[in-house]
Design a protein around this nucleic acid. Structure first.
Lengths: 153, 153
DNA sequence: ATGGGGTATATTGTGCACAATCTATATATG
DNA sequence: CATATATAGATTGTGCACAATATACCCCAT
């Protein structure tokens, strides 16, 4: 669907509706708001949920490898992981083979949380009522943008 | 472009690559990182830049109307606007007709900044090297999602 | 006019997100 | 072996983003 503002008809380049970045920024905030109550029931924030997704796929992992997956640095992850350690979902231990590294592993409680978390995507798509096809399409669009952005990082 | 993970072949629903929200979250962070040095030259952060876009289009405005445009609440905007007042770009004055309201207006310095800001979109698209057509396509995709999200806010 | 209900903004507290900087450790190179 | 260089995390400081709450104010119906 292409609306008037999308056409290159010499409008104001600073019009909010002509920015790519703004809808992306707004959508990211709105999704976060939508996730918040659902994840709150599990005792997680959205970045913490993403961290759990990474760990459920493969654990233990270093702080660095988690950051590579999520495109986050240690300044963000260190305090986040300490909070998750406090809430008993993960453990943080120095790697004895390379003492610069900290290994993040799941606790029993962290592993158990997975069965509850598996319901989250379904709850969300039900709440939004978007069909799976348009979700897949949007996802590949945004993923292409991420690929371009990654190249210019 | 549809890749393997997009097909509904019964994979793990918690796989990071199957989430819509994650690429969106990552793209939003990455765009913010990309904007930061460019806007830093103008003395702005990204949300402050968005606020200026709103004000350049129409000023003065209330905190509320700015928040409606950007989907942000007063808890976010109040301190942000105070910082912008400190840096001399805007003024904050109680509306005498309705003392609940605060009117945000541009200062001369704020209006002058516009000519520099007009270069920002060109700098950015040059830096990314994405053609205008795919940007327009992506924009309408994300905007559709925002419309859906807005309906469920 | 007055009291009740809704509105506009501010405040407080928590949790990201990132740049800049620091410390400790590992590894390569002479 | 010694030292230079690079790497892994942690720390500090700034600025969002939001929920929950507080405060002041407008307006309407009695």
């Amino acid at each position: 669907m292409v609306v008037a503002e999308d056409r290159l008809e010499g409008g104001d380049p600073l019009d909010l509706d002509r920015q790519v970045c703004f809808p992306l920024y707004a959508a990211s905030n709105m999704l976060n708001r939508l996730y918040r109550p659902i994840l709150g029931d599990l005792g997680l924030t959205y970045p913490q949920y993403l961290t759990m997704l990474v760990l459920w796929k493969d654990a233990p992992q270093t702080v660095r490898s988690i950051g590579d997956m999520l495109h986050l640095d240690s300044g963000t992850l260190t305090p986040l992981l300490k909070r998750m350690e406090q809430s008993g979902l993960i453990s943080r231990t120095r790697d004895l083979d390379d003492e610069r590294r900290v290994l993040i592993d799941l606790t029993a409680k962290g592993r158990e949380l997975r069965s509850d978390a598996e319901k989250v995507p379904a709850i969300l798509s039900a709440e939004l009522g978007i069909d799976e096809a348009s979700i897949a399409h949007l996802r590949s669009q945004v993923r292409d943008l991420v690929a371009v952005l990654k190249a210019h990082a």
